Simulated scan of single mutants.
Amino acid sequence: MSTPPLWPEELVSTGAEREVLEAFLDCQRRQIKAKLAGVAEEAARRRIVPSKTTPAGLIKHLTAVERNWFHRQLAQRDPAGIPGNSRGDDQSWELGPDDTLDHLIAEYDKVCQESRRIAAGFALDDTVPSERLGRVSLRWIYTHMIEETAQHAGHADILRELIDGATGL
Rank of each mutant, 00 (worst) to 15 (best):
N68H: 15
E19Q: 12
A23S: 12
G88Q: 02
E17S: 09
I32F: 03
D109P: 04
V128C: 07
T54M: 02
P79L: 05
I48G: 02
A37L: 11
I82M: 04
A44Q: 03
R67W: 02
R18E: 08
W140K: 09
D126R: 10
G38I: 05
F24Y: 15
R132F: 13
L124A: 04
S13M: 13
A23E: 05
S51H: 11
C27V: 10
Q151D: 10
D99A: 05
L124M: 08
V39R: 00
Y142W: 12
G165D: 06
D126A: 14
A37Y: 08
G57I: 01
R117F: 06
L95K: 05
F70R: 01
I32Q: 02
H71P: 06
K110C: 14
T54Q: 05
D157R: 01
G154I: 07
D89E: 11
S137T: 14
D157N: 13
F122Y: 15
L6H: 14
V65C: 04
L62V: 01
R72Y: 06
G57F: 01
L159G: 01
G134P: 01
L104T: 09
S115D: 05
H103C: 04
G81A: 12
D99M: 03
G88C: 08
E19R: 06
S137G: 12
V65K: 00
E22L: 07
T143H: 07
D109W: 09
D99Q: 03
P83R: 09
A40D: 13
T3Y: 08
S115N: 08
V65G: 00
K110S: 15
D126W: 07
V20I: 15
A16W: 04
A150Y: 06
V65H: 02
H103E: 14
L138D: 00
V136Y: 04
R46S: 11
L95R: 03
L6V: 06
F70V: 01
P129I: 14
P55N: 07
P129W: 08
D109S: 05
R72V: 02
T53L: 13
D99Y: 00
N85A: 02
K52Q: 14
T127G: 04
A56Y: 00
I59L: 06
C27A: 15
A123K: 15
E107C: 05
L169C: 13
D98F: 07
F70T: 00
A156V: 00
R46E: 13
K60Q: 01
A166Y: 04
D125K: 12
G96A: 08
E161P: 03
T167A: 11
P97I: 02
G134W: 07
S115V: 06
T53E: 11
R45E: 04
G81S: 15
W7I: 12
T167V: 14
R117V: 10
M145C: 06
D126N: 09
L6P: 07
R160K: 12
R45A: 07
D126Y: 11
A44S: 12
D90G: 07
L6F: 10
E22Y: 03
T63F: 01
Q76N: 11
A43K: 13
I82Q: 03
P8K: 12
C112T: 11
